[in-house]
Every structure is written in C-alpha cells, then in structure tokens.
C-alpha cells in the first residue's frame, strides 16, 4: 500500500460509485479494508491484487480472494470485461507505466475507478514554492528518495491522460483533507488547487 491506511478517506466515496452485487477487482488491496467495505455495503464478488506479501497474507487470512502481484505485470492475464469495476485506489502514482495501466483497467473492467493524491493541491504547491523541497505532507508522508510514489500527477494531469487514452469521465470527485467532497460546480482549476485527493469513475 502506498498511502497510510488510516487516511483512506476515498473508500466511502468509492463505495458509493459501485453498484450492488457487482464483480470487482481491487488493485492494491492493502490489508483488504476496501474489499471488506464493498462486500459489507455493496455485496460485491470481490478479487484483489496486492504487492506486499504481508498485505496478501492478511487479506487471505481474512478470507478475501487476493493474489500477490502488481498493476504493471499482472493485469495482462485477465480477459476483456471480466469485471464490472476495476479499482485502482491510491496506487496509480506507484506504477511504472500509468498510461498502460489505465488502458488495462478500461479493458478488464466495464468501469474503472481511480483515486489518487492530487499533487496540484495548494499545500504541495506552497511547500515547493516557499520550502524549495519536495513536499512531505500527512497524505504524502515519504521523502523523495524512499517514496514508492514514482509518478505523481495533478488532477489536471490525470484529466489529460484520460483524454489521451480515450476514456470517458462518468463522474469525478475532489476531496478535501477530511474526505468531504468539494462542490461540483467549481472549475477543474479550482478542484486542482483545493482537492487533496481525487476519485474518478471512468469508462471506455
């Protein structure tokens, strides 16, 4: 898991996007919290992929169908449209090739749900502007040299990527530090400034 699990304010927002009884693949399952939440609230048929051995072992011991693997290497084995939703929560910034990964999500799932920390948030910008150093915040607790997050993007960067791979944005949410949704009427540029995290529901 790339981001501290106690701060997973995006989970409830994701759960609200998932239809009842859907088939879901959760990539970067961590300790299985999201899969358990989705099973409890949405009655999903869930599968997971997790990089860390400890995470996988925890998930399987909790009775979840999780395999060890990662988004860069293991998605290729899944057939087209084998899931209703493929979820990549707080993980895209840790993949080697986010563009290929995003294309794979859209191939495997009817919908893709992607959440990520917004590198365009004002705190990040201020930290870089005045501190002159790569920001280390509550959401992004790593130093530049030991971070698993090798492909940070801002909310606007991500929107551009969705255009490039031809994905349609069905819904988008920007969340503030406490996980509250930011009013929908604001333009992308303001979301990009105030959204600490973003959640996108995409389809081909």
């Amino acid at each position: 898991m790339s981001v501290n699990s106690t701060q997973r304010v995006d989970f409830q927002v994701i759960a609200d996007l998932v239809a009842e009884g859907a088939r879901v693949l959760d990539i970067g399952s961590g300790d299985g919290s999201l899969l358990e939440l989705l099973a409890a609230e949405r009655g999903i048929d869930g599968r997971g992929i997790e990089l860390s051995q400890q995470g996988v072992n925890e998930c399987v011991a909790r009775g979840l169908s999780v395999i060890q693997g990662d988004a860069d290497h293991d998605l290729v084995y899944y057939p087209d449209e084998s899931f209703d939703y493929v979820i990549l929560s707080q993980t895209i910034q840790a993949t080697h090739n986010p563009k290929i990964v995003l294309k794979e999500l859209l191939r495997i799932g009817r919908y893709a749900i992607v959440s990520f920390p917004n590198f365009g948030h004002w705190r990040v910008r201020l930290s870089l502007l005045f501190g002159g150093q790569m920001p280390v915040t509550k959401d992004l607790p790593y130093s530049w040299y030991d971070t698993p997050n090798i492909h940070f993007c801002t909310l606007q960067d991500f929107v551009r990527l969705t255009e490039e791979v031809g994905a349609k944005i069905e819904r988008a949410e920007a969340l503030d530090a406490s996980g509250q949704k930011i009013a929908v009427s604001l333009p992308w540029s303001l979301w990009n400034l105030f959204g600490q995290q973003a959640v996108f529901l995409l389809r081909r």
Binding site: Q53, V56, C59, Y77
Partner: peptide, 21 residues
C-alpha cells in the same frame, strides 16, 4: 505456481495466492 494463478485469472476463477518467505 504463479502460472496456475494466471491461468485461473484468465478464467475469472476465485483465487487467492500467497508466497511465503
């Protein structure tokens, strides 16, 4: 072992896989 997991993934089977150190 992983080759089996990948084959099972391709059929949409319910599969867990743990590698123990």
């Amino acid at each position: 072992n992983r080759a089996i997991v990948h084959a099972l993934n391709a059929t949409g089977a319910s599969v867990s896989f743990v590698e123990i150190e």
